[in-house]
């Protein structure tokens, strides 16, 4: 059973809890979210505790992460986008660390469940709408009316813009979810091949070298994907926030 590639996504109740008919158990997913928050916070608290003029290695890492996210946000949304820096920074670290935790064998990958990525994508989506309306008022809807488009195609363009705007949370969440899910399944499938082939005998053991090499390669690739998807999610967040900030500027 442990050999099948889907069981790694099973949610296990660690502390069963219920309110009315709603199951709100503390599960392995909750555990890894808590672990992510605790480990990341503890690292950053420790790394920045000295507030050194000359940074230690850990402090330098924390500063580099800060600058990395700050530059991403500034490039995508301008310097007034920095008001969203805490959100963007938290999102990036939260997703990155969750994805990296998922790379440990026997660990649970929180972002491989669509409900989590949808919740995060909707958080961004509603932040964009709420702040966009607060800042630009009705000017926010200029977002759907690109300038310089001839009048007769304008209705079509507006329709496309609206559809693309509302499909954002879908692509935003599915991209992260599907990458994590597919990557982990692929990894598990190839790792499973090693075991299955190895159990047939000598020929199988020799043949198992191929899926073994594949698994090594995929593991490296998955580390890249784990980072890249956190980065992509954050970058898209920055670009969507840019719309909220500068909707009237188009």
């Amino acid at each position: 059973m442990a050999n099948d590639p889907i069981s790694q996504f099973n949610i296990k109740e660690l502390i069963p809890l219920e309110i009315g008919a709603t199951n709100i158990s503390f599960t392995n997913s909750s555990l890894f979210m808590v672990a992510t928050v605790v480990v990341t916070s503890a690292f950053f608290m420790w790394a920045t505790s000295r507030r050194g003029m000359i940074p230690t290695r850990a402090q330098s890492f924390a500063e580099t992460t800060y600058e990395f996210v700050a530059n991403m946000l500034r490039d995508a949304a301008g310097s007034d986008g920095m008001r969203f820096f805490p959100l963007v920074f938290s999102l990036f670290l939260f997703i990155l660390v969750i994805n990296m935790f998922g790379m440990f064998p026997y660990f649970f990958t929180v972002t491989s469940h669509i409900i989590i990525t949808v919740a995060l994508a909707l958080l961004v989506f509603f932040t964009v709408i709420a702040y966009g309306l607060y800042k630009n008022g009705l000017g926010f809807f200029k977002l759907f009316v690109p300038s310089g488009v001839p009048g007769f195609v304008l209705p079509l363009v507006v329709l496309i813009e609206i559809i693309s705007f509302f499909s954002r949370p879908i692509s935003h969440s599915v991209r992260l979810f599907a990458n994590m899910l597919a990557g982990h399944i692929t990894l598990k499938v190839f790792a499973g091949f090693i075991v299955s082939m190895g159990s047939i005998g000598a020929v199988g053991v020799v043949g198992a070298i191929l899926p073994f090499l594949m698994t090594i390669g995929l593991t490296a690739l998955e580390f890249l994907v784990a980072f890249l998807q956190a980065y992509v999610f954050t970058l898209l967040t920055c670009m969507y926030l840019n719309d909220a900030l500068h909707a009237g500027d188009h």
Binding site: I11, I24, F26, T27, S30, T36, Y66, F89
Partner: peptide, 29 residues
């Protein structure tokens, strides 16, 4: 089955994380 649980724990953990980041770690950095 576990959608409610996941959302609840996401809100708790990410909320705490966001609070800590915006109040302590980001100002410090």
């Amino acid at each position: 089955t576990y959608f409610a649980s996941q959302i609840l724990w996401l809100v708790i953990t990410f909320g705490a994380f966001y609070w800590l980041m915006s109040r302590v770690i980001i100002p410090r950095l």
